[in-house]
Write a protein that binds this DNA or RNA. Structure first.
Length: 581
RNA sequence: GCCCUGGUAGCUCAGCUGGAUAGAGCGUCCCCCUCCUAAGGGGAAGGCCAGAGGUUCGAAUCCUCUUCAGGGCACCA
């Protein structure tokens, strides 16, 4: 609808340009807004005010000129000038009523758009280190990333979802020796467990399973291990244990212990995400980038183009020259590549796989990392503007007033699975999405659990269930409803609440498009609350199942359309639309 | 010190990328089921949009400074 009005305005302005009332310009942006209240019509444009200055005339006069040249249209009832020079557009009733037909015709396709033009798009999210189960913080990234992906799919982007598995690096080695030490303890070895190793009970489960499958294969003499615990500095102690373990178990056996931890945790993560309604197209392994030499090739290319120098025995990337605040290490003094080095390779892979739009969803604590990744892409001539990094602020969990802590290493955290078990998938998904991603999120368990109107999820779902309930009663009352037949009656939808509801329903495609291109799924959440509110108000004001065939049929099509839009919207957020509550 | 985010009703937050009287939920106060689910609806009260400058026809929205809160500034990932 907005586009139709835009087109009309464009034609009018072209005429004014040809008459030299306004100067010609190529980059004219015509903004059409949904009016706030009905007294300002259905849509409004401020075009006259923005053009008044260059046209050297007053806005109201210019607005009149624009209206005079406006072509005939079968959707517009009338057009008025208001306030300082707004042009307000009033739609004909049947233009409103037509949205019901459009929604029911398109069904779950209603709201789809093609702005994405099939752009190959990769969105990477969650990507939590596989060192423990997903916790409450990861949940936000999961819910947000999944919602953005759904929105982009709806708007015509060719979207692929990916999880980057950090299966290389020191954190994983710490996981491996955590498993190994628990394994030794499990078979009765008296041995301490460092406080900075992974404390969670899930490590013990992995160790038990490891022992079941391999019995005593990984046992080493306790006497030779004990001296390592004399190291005072905790991190050095860990490093000593890792080195000892690799040297004495041998590369192959160490890898078995390592993989036992990795695989088991990965399975847990995958299952938890599936339960949460979040699925990925690819699980991309960091280790694979090392093993297939992509990392080395990347570094070689950087060296070739003089982006690398040596200092203190390490290899440094000149990121400073490309906008970062300091240079970054690619290869450490000990010869090992940094996480950053594999991340460069990872982004190279993303570009080489043909993605035009590359989205990374990161926790806000990674913001300092943006400059160096962009710098690396620049250095490798990978068009950094393809990369869009979306930061998600932290989620803090509350139970009423009590703040709950979380830390993977200490093992004290609420897992995503526990959260879901407690508040349910729908409330969890919706609460995560409800807040703007750059806002800190205080997730209150009590509120999410409350089955009351404090809880917007139930408010929206209730609207859907109420509509379903109405339709369930038709056969009981012996009423015949045929959608196709009933649609012929929509012209009787003239009650104020009906017009309001129609206008809100008509907004849906705009909401989807805007939420998608701004990566703001919360806009959809708020829209659905509005829609539910319009429906509940209508429900209280007007009876749907009435004796008059024409009115009843018209109303039933309207609420059926409402049901469809609620369903469409909720499904994009990963929330169910229950038929009964 | 530098870099991100935030500061809007008593509380939790929206505010459609610069527009017309600043919105919603909760809380408070009043009203609405002989009627399709009251997990609902209607109404009232409640605001110097953190503060100060600036940009312009017009600012909660853009720019600068100040201030408060959270986070980040590794040869960790």
């Amino acid at each position: 609808m907005k586009k139709q009005i835009q087109e009309l305005l464009l034609q009018s302005l072209a005429i004014l340009e040809s008459k030299e009332i306004i100067p010609a310009s190529n980059d004219l942006v015509i903004k059409i807004e949904n009016s706030r209240g009905s007294e300002h019509g259905d849509f409004a444009s401020n075009i006259a005010m923005t053009l008044a200055k260059t046209a050297k005339t007053n806005p109201r006069q210019l607005a009149q000129n624009i209206i005079d040249q406006l072509p005939e249209s079968d959707v517009l009832e009338r057009v008025e000038i208001a306030g300082p020079g707004f042009i307000n557009f009033y739609l004909k009733q049947n233009a409103h009523q037509a949205t019901v037909v459009e929604i029911l015709k398109n069904g779950h396709q209603y709201g789809n758009s093609k702005v994405g033009a099939n752009t190959p798009t990769l969105i990477e999210f969650v990507s939590a280190n596989p060192t423990g189960p997903l916790h409450i913080g990861h949940g936000r990234g999961a819910a947000y990333g999944a919602a953005v992906a759904s929105l982009l799919k709806k708007t015509g982007f060719d979207v692929s979802c990916e999880y980057y598995i950090n299966d290389a690096g020191r954190q994983m080695d710490i996981l491996a020796i955590s498993v190994w030490l628990r394994y030794l303890q499990h078979i009765g070895t008296e041995i301490p467990f460092p406080e900075n190793a992974y404390q969670g009970d899930y490590i013990i489960d992995i160790a038990i399973k490891l022992h079941e499958e391999h019995t005593d294969k990984f046992v080493l003499p306790t006497d030779s291990i004990m001296p390592l615990f004399e190291e005072e500095e905790p991190e050095l102690k860990i490093d000593g244990l890792i080195k000892y373990c690799i040297d004495n178990l041998g590369e192959k056996n160490y890898r078995m212990v390592f993989d036992a931890g990795l695989d088991s945790i990965l399975v847990t993560i995958k299952n938890d995400l599936v339960d949460f309604g979040v699925e990925f197209n690819h699980w991309f392994s960091e280790r694979s980038l090392v093993e297939d030499n992509t990392v080395n090739q990347c570094i070689a290319k950087l060296i070739e183009n003089d982006w690398v120098y040596e200092k203190d025995g390490a290899q440094w990337f000149r990121s400073c020259k490309l906008g970062d605040e300091k240079d970054r290490v690619l290869i450490r003094e000990n010869g090992q590549a940094t996480y950053f080095a594999s991340d460069i390779a990872y982004h190279l892979s993303k570009v080489e796989r043909g993605f035009e739009k590359i989205i990374d969803v990161w926790g806000a604590d990674h913001h300092g990392y943006i400059a160096r990744v962009k710098a690396a892409m620049e250095a490798l001539e990978l068009s950094p503007e393809k990369l869009e990094i979306l930061l998600v602020q932290f989620a803090t969990l509350y139970r009423g007033k009590e703040k709950l802590q979380m830390s993977t290493r200490s093992g004290e955290f609420i897992t995503l699975k526990q959260l879901q078990g407690e508040v349910g998938k729908d409330a969890a998904r919706f609460f995560y999405i409800m807040r703007k991603s750059e806002q800190h999120l205080d997730f209150d368990l009590e509120l999410a659990k409350s089955e009351s109107n404090d809880n917007p999820v139930y408010y929206i779902q209730y609207a859907h269930a109420r509509i379903c309930s109405v339709f369930r009663q038709l056969p009981e009352k012996g009423i015949n409803y045929q959608q196709a037949e009933a649609l012929k009656n929509v012209s009787s939808l003239n009650e104020p609440h009906e017009i309001k509801l129609l206008a809100t329903l008509a907004r849906y495609p705009d909401v989807i498009e805007n939420a998608a291109i701004t990566y703001e799924p919360h806009q959809l959440a708020y829209y659905l609350k509005d829609l539910a509110n319009d429906f509940h108000t209508y429900y209280n004001a007007n009876q749907f199942i009435v004796d008059d065939n024409v009115i009843r049929n018209a109303r039933l099509t309207l609420i059926e359309a409402t049901k469809q839009v609620i369903q469409n919207g909720l499904s994009l957020l990963g929330v169910n639309a229950p038929e009964v509550m």
